[in-house]
């Protein structure tokens, strides 16, 4: 019983997070400007991270945390570099 509840709620939440990723992806593709795409990319990173966390609960393993942490780090650095590029035209001054 309790296992079924967890199973179906995890299914529902993964479905919702998948839809959220699609929504962010749509914004990345349609733009209209560079900053919109970068904002959506940042959101996509975060949703992917959360999806991995729910996957960790489903498979009862903690391996996914390492990947989630990596995504968090890379997403931050990537978005900062892109924002910097929009501001100045170059990443390292």
């Amino acid at each position: 019983m309790s296992l079924a509840i967890l199973h179906w709620s995890l299914f529902a939440s993964q479905l919702m997070l998948g839809l959220a990723m699609l929504a962010a992806l749509w914004r990345i593709v349609s733009g209209p400007r560079a900053q919109d795409r970068i904002l959506a990319l940042d959101a996509l990173y975060v949703v992917a991270l959360l999806l991995l966390v729910t996957l960790g609960i489903r498979t009862n393993s903690q391996v996914y945390f390492e990947i989630a942490m990596l995504i968090a780090l890379l997403g931050f650095v990537g978005t900062v570099a892109l924002a910097k590029f929009l501001m100045r035209g170059e990443v390292i001054e």
């Binding site: 967890l6 709620s9 995890l10 529902a12 997070l17 959220a20 962010a24 975060v46």
Partner: peptide, 20 residues
């Protein structure tokens, strides 16, 4: 755990729909 995860996903989904 189910309540927390579903509620959290719903909020995230609402945010990303807002993006669109």
């Amino acid at each position: 755990v189910s309540a927390a995860v579903v509620l959290g996903s719903a909020l995230t989904l609402a945010g990303c729909f807002g993006l669109v």
